[in-house]
Design a protein around this nucleic acid. Sequence first.
DNA 1: GCCGTTTTCGGCCCGACTGTTTTCAGTCG
Length: 575
Amino acid sequence: MSPADVARILDEMGTLLELRGENPFRCRAYHNAADAIRGLGDDLPERIASGRLAEVPGIGETIRAKVVQLVTTGSVPLYDELRAELPPGLVALLRVPGLGPKKIKALHDALKVESLADLRLAAESGKIAGLKGFGAKTEQKILEGLGFVESTGDRILQSTARRLVSPILGAVRSHPGVIEAEACGSLRRRLDTIGDLDILFSSDDPAPVLDRFVSLPEVASVLAHGPTKASVRLAGGVQCDLRGVSPGQFPFALHYFTGSKAHNIAMRRRAIARGLRLNEYALEGPDGPIPCGSEEELFRALGLHAIPPELREDRGEFDRAEAGPIPPLVERGDLRGTFHCHTDWSDGGNTLAEMAEAARDRGLSYLGIADHSRSAAYAGGLSIDRVRRQWEAIDELNAAMGPAFRVFKGIECDILADGSLDYPDDVLEGFDYVVASVHSSFGLPAEAMTARIVRAVRHPLVTMLGHPTGRLLLRREAYAVDLGAVIEAAAEAGTMIEINASPHRLDLDAPHVRRARDRGVAIVINPDAHATGGLDDLDYGVGVARRAGLGAAEVFNSLPAEEASRALTKLRTRG
DNA sequence: GCCGTTTTCGGCCCGACTGTTTTCAGTCG
Ligand SMILES: Nc1nc2c(ncn2[C@H]2C[C@H](O)[C@@H](COP(=O)(O)OP(=O)(O)OP(=O)(O)O)O2)c(=O)[nH]1
Ligand SMILES: [Mg+2]
Ligand SMILES: [Mg+2]
Ligand SMILES: [Zn+2]
């Protein structure tokens, strides 16, 4: 069983124990262990093999044994017991806003509610309002919540979130009582997908700001509205939380509202261990509050160097920030050029010249073209003849644009089902660089897919591996592939791995980028732009690189054009 | 169930909002 599956089952065990009414701390131990297993990721088998699993914080003897059992046999008695005891539809009830384990247990015990359908029937027939601890309003909320559960998915793309948050943040900032306002939560941490919008503002008088917020035209319904925070559902179903604090509280609240939850809890435990107390308003010492004018000062007060938002997941950042300053993470401004861009020669929307000018307008000094290869007929893949004609066009464009900008000849070359490439070597040799990507036969078994990709990665004319897992966020799972083996092969061959910066992909993901970097693989941030506007997606890729802890020096396209060009030549002639 | 620079027992992050409550539990961030 994979680490992700083990984590999922531990989480479910925690949830089922909650629904059974067990001690909340015991339940949380299972959720914590699930988090710890997710943090280990592909290191789990090695941890088990070396007998060091129980050394992981959050995993004690009891859960260690269960994890080993899950990994080796695929099942564990307590899980089977819980599944047999509790109806399978009960867990889904947690998706109804306002319903938690206690209320669900009460509904189950009193009304035999076992599923969303049962819940709807119970609410519609008015049976819920009479229950102890319930009332007419709760029943009404349940009915509204049921409509929501049935109508919406739970997370959105970062690009969608940015689009949605921008006018709301603008409205908050334009309120005369607002001093500053920031988007926080997973958006500030730049996660792959976003659950809701979290906005923080400072003001000497937050209540009027919240009053105006809940009446914005974007707001479809108000979920909660108090003097310091409000939650609304926007048209379209996305939730938006707004929180207001005084200017002096802002640094503490900014840190709190940025999260992650696990990071916050670790910070608060750290404060306790030092005889202090931390909440979203202040850091309290035995002799009164310890002033902090910024997040940096808060970290400092707890004996830590500054931790950038992208690293705040309780995934080792505390050890690193204790050991010394965290080296600066790569920024968009560090990128000097870009690869993997499409044009109207295949399925792109703009010409070579338009793409080059757009790249130059964005402060870049080189652009690597990568249209589709000939097997990608659906995407206007280039015949060998068209390839040669595009090379001529690029030569002309380079001559026209002068020495301050460089267009590289490249191709996004399909990796065919057997791992061979889509052109003969004598054609591939003519490119400045080659991105190799899988666009077909996604259903291969893991062994075959891994062998296929490894073969391509080892090809001396392949410069970089494109979107290594093929995932489409919220739409399509990654295909089955052993990324550890792919990363090893890339490290041996000197082939780069792409962070595909399209907000629909973000592939390779941050945890594997970190592993690849640790194995010495060069990382390149590619926008996979299909039009000039797609070049702006580079920033999403920078987010992934930052979450992986990468500095500018570890990102290939932060090299200036001359050095990048020399490196590409060297790669083409490796052997 | 996990864990230990005050603990091997007794804590476990901490606060806002809601609804049903007559003093607070549940849910959520
Ligand atoms: N201390 C503490 N902080 C929390 C807790 N739950 C949430 N927070 C903080 C950290 C979160 O990043 C922030 C916003 O909460 P959200 O539920 O919106 O989570 P977040 O934005 O991280 O992820 P999301 O993409 O919305 O699922 O509030 C909690 O239980 N304790
Ligand atoms: Mg959020
Ligand atoms: Mg939120
Ligand atoms: Zn592609």
